[in-house]
């Protein structure tokens, strides 16, 4: 379904700001799977999702999605297959346009847009039903600009927009990180519901061990641009928050060791 083969990316190559956020990442995700991606700050999680979405061209490696080799597809072309929710609630919606208009944009994700009226009656009826399911009272405010809503409300709508046309792949990048705990729980509940109902293949980045332990059927933990640990099947089901924290600690120690070895080498040989 989704295959990521040994992908590499370097930003600002050859300058003082050179970063290598992806150093040979591979994933193989069957249809309907729900992968949770963990990892420290700067370990390359968002860059991995951006690579899959096609935000930038890869240096190396290939990406196959739903039977297509999408490696050379531009972002707007891949959008036909991918629904996305971003960390920042401001990224996923057009603030000066109404809830209804944002939804009208999403319902034609990846399809031709013609000179037909955007806000048809059918669309409004469908939208009202779907928004009602969020139980946020937004169904009476469809004409309001999205910019006037709270972050949680915007994320809920973005999730709805990303999934109203069933995507082959759903990408969630810390989509609850900017929310207060109550809204975050609410969004996670909605996320679970939507993924279950439409049997969506999902990649979700999170910093919450709790979410990682409770959600999904597989986990990868990233470290310095590559996958450090993978858990699947029964392993994943057995995994508890403490186990995950222990793995994190291990990575942290390994990193310190790396740094001290580097320092040692530098002292002795340079």
């Amino acid at each position: 379904m989704l295959t990521v083969q040994n992908i590499y990316k370097t930003f600002n190559a050859g300058t003082a700001n050179e970063v290598r956020p992806l150093r040979g990442v591979s994933l193989d995700i069957p249809e309907g799977a729900f992968l949770v991606i963990l990892g420290g700050n700067g370990s390359g999680k968002s860059t991995l999702l951006n690579a899959i979405a096609g935000t930038f061209p890869l240096d190396n490696g290939e990406i196959h999605l739903a039977g297509h080799n999408v490696t050379r597809w531009q972002e707007h072309r891949r959008a036909r297959l991918i629904g996305r929710v971003f960390q920042n609630p401001f990224t996923g919606t057009a603030p000066n346009m109404s809830i209804a208009e944002n939804f009208a944009l999403a319902i034609r994700r990846g399809q031709a847009r013609g000179l037909g009226w955007a806000l048809t009656k059918n669309l409004m009826d469908e939208l009202r039903d779907r928004v009602k399911e969020l139980r946020m009272g937004l169904e009476d405010r469809l004409g309001n600009a999205i910019g006037s809503l709270s972050g949680g409300q915007r994320q809920a709508l973005t999730l709805l927009m990303a999934t109203c046309l069933k995507p082959a792949l759903l990408l969630l990048d810390e989509h609850t990180a900017a929310l207060d705990p109550k809204s975050a729980d609410q969004i996670i509940r909605v996320t679970e519901e939507v993924i279950k109902r439409h049997k969506l293949t999902t990649l979700m980045v999170t910093h919450s061990m709790q979410q990682a332990a409770n959600l999904g059927d597989r986990i990868v933990m990233m470290h310095r641009g590559s996958v450090a640990y993978r858990f699947e099947g029964a392993d994943k089901q057995r995994l508890r928050v403490e186990d995950l924290l222990a793995r994190f600690e291990e990575l942290r120690r390994r990193e310190m060791l790396d740094d001290s070895v580097a320092a040692l080498l530098q002292e002795n040989y340079i």
């Binding site: 707007h76 959008a79 036909r80 990224t91 057009a94 944009l105």
Partner: peptide, 12 residues
Amino acid sequence: DNPQMIRALGVN
């Protein structure tokens, strides 16, 4: 209004 968002929705 939001180029990043609309690109993710398939618009060139």
